[in-house]
Amino acid sequence: MKQRCSIRISGFGGQGIVLSGYIVGKAASLHDKKNSAFTQSYGPEARGGACSACVVIEEGKISYPLVKNADFLIVLSKEGYEKYSDKVTAEGLTFVDSDLVSGALVDNQKVFGIPATRLAESMGKKIVANIIMLGFFTAVTGVISKEAMIESIKTSVKKSFIDINLKAFARGCEHAATIRGQE
């Protein structure tokens, strides 16, 4: 991993975009013992529209805390993809909900796809699509350790929802394995 790495998560307000950013930031900062800065949408888009959350992770002290072009883009809506797909670094990787983001060309090289919302629905809880996405992202990139993510999820969601979220995270990780299998 590079010295500094930046992640942008985008989707509709309500898909758990801000929570996802918080979980990633907390995992990196408190559990992987690096430094992270998490910023989020505060305008009306946080309640609908193209909401975004950004996380900067660094081994050392973070000077510049904002994200312009992200090393990793995670998108859960078409609108989010249209808004941010070109704001990715040259070596950057994009992760999309392949059912919701129809415009993205999934090649599993630069753009990775997972039907996160459909998988979440099959688990009986559509709202955990964001966590499935995070599981997929974590397993493919290894930017954050799985253990750190699990700890972070446990302390970031309501107690009665911990189990379903951990299952969703595992489901996302499994899906990454199937992609590797294809290669």
Binding site: K26, L30, F38, T39, Q40, Y42, P65
Partner: peptide, 8 residues
């Protein structure tokens, strides 16, 4: 920005 940014 500082007020709304989350850090360690």
């Amino acid at each position: 920005l500082v007020g709304h940014m989350t850090e360690k």
